[in-house]
């Protein structure tokens, strides 16, 4: 791992001789943050790595015994855990696809001269700023089979959204789409408005059809920013906990974070849950790595 090491600074030597030296200031400004993050993020992870090789249960006073890789072996051979991963994957696909379709579509509509465009955009962004837990709660009211406004508006009678094992995951995804499509819209809009207008004019002169224009001009130019939105949302949907936990308690909506929470804080299988946490962590870091590559690529443009 990289450490903060003295290197030559570009400042004037006269200025550097007054007060604190630049190197001291740099270290004073950077090191506390790095230390804080190491103590409160990295150290706990090392701590739990240790527990992941034990059968420790935080609910008892029994000392932890070392069991080697047994937790990992059992987890990776457990079909129920794989079922949780499959549910998570399904949720990610449905939710992110929905957000891209709705978000990008809305951005295409908004990318023209529209009265009160700034105001409308701000209103559309409101859902994603709200608390997921509280959003989950009030969507329960909207989804209610007997007096929910969704069933009334769609004429579905007393259709069960959340109590129905088949439907519940889609209900959670719909709420997530409502919340986060605006995020995809916001980023797409930034990409769309950066497409030089003369490209469209040239295409119009060449009598290019709307499909040709979209696939050959618009999409390739928006793609890098759209990828940032997609990867970021994929990562967030993979980690999702609040919405699904509050909206339903179906086995069909038990995404991996909920399984992890139950294993750690309801079944108190601390050692095993630490091992599962590590499996999840490695997956998240892999997605983060891809995400940062795209962030830097867009930044460099």
């Amino acid at each position: 791992m990289a450490t903060v090491v003295m290197t030559s600074l570009d400042s004037k030597s006269r200025a550097a001789s007054r007060g604190l030296s630049d190197i001291k200031i740099r270290n004073l400004f950077i090191i506390p943050t790095i230390l804080f993050l190491i103590v409160f993020n990295i150290f706990p992870l090392i701590y739990s790595l240790g527990y992941s090789f034990t059968d420790f249960r935080a609910s008892t006073n029994a000392p932890a015994t070392f069991v080697g890789l047994q937790n990992y072996r059992e987890l990776l051979n457990d079909p129920f855990i794989w079922a949780n991963f499959a549910i998570t994957a399904k949720y990610v696909i449905v939710s992110v696809t929905g957000q891209v379709v709705v978000g990008f579509g809305t951005a295409m509509l908004l990318n023209r001269e529209i009265p009160f465009k700034g105001f409308i955009t701000t209103l559309l962004l409101l859902p994603m700023m709200l608390s997921m837990a509280v959003v989950g709660l009030f969507w329960k009211l909207l989804y209610d089979p007997s007096f929910g406004i969704i069933n009334y508006a769609l004429g579905l009678g007393s259709f069960e959204w959340l109590a129905n094992p088949e439907m519940a995951l889609y209900a959670v995804a719909i709420t997530d789409i409502w919340m986060w499509s605006p995020f995809v819209m916001l980023l797409s809009l930034a990409g769309l408005s950066a497409v030089p207008r003369h490209l469209y004019e040239a295409a119009a002169i060449d009598r290019a059809g709307p499909f040709y224009t979209f696939f050959r001009i618009t999409l390739p130019l928006v793609a890098p920013i759209l990828m940032i939105a997609i990867i970021f949302r994929t990562m967030e949907a993979f980690k999702t906990f609040d919405l699904a936990y509050i909206l339903t308690s179906q086995p069909t909506t038990e995404v991996i974070s909920i399984r992890l929470y139950k294993m750690a804080f309801q079944e108190w299988q601390t050692g095993r849950s630490c091992a599962l946490a590590y499996i999840v962590l490695i997956m998240v870091l892999a997605i983060t790595n891809i995400y940062v590559k795209y962030l830097n690529r867009v930044k460099e443009r």
């Binding site: 943050t33 790095i34 993050l37 409160f40 993020n41 990295i42 706990p44 992870l45 701590y47 739990s48 527990y51 935080a58 990562m235 980690k239 906990f241 974070s257 992890l260 929470y261 750690a264 804080f265 601390t270 849950s273 630490c274 946490a277 999840v280 962590l281 998240v284 870091l285 997605i287 983060t288 995400y291 940062v292």
Partner: peptide, 18 residues
């Protein structure tokens, strides 16, 4: 620094709780 932000809360919460 950025990767610490991406950690799933439940993953960090288990050791922090202890």
């Amino acid at each position: 620094i950025l990767s610490t932000r991406m950690l799933p809360p439940v993953v960090v919460a288990i050791p922090m709780f202890l």
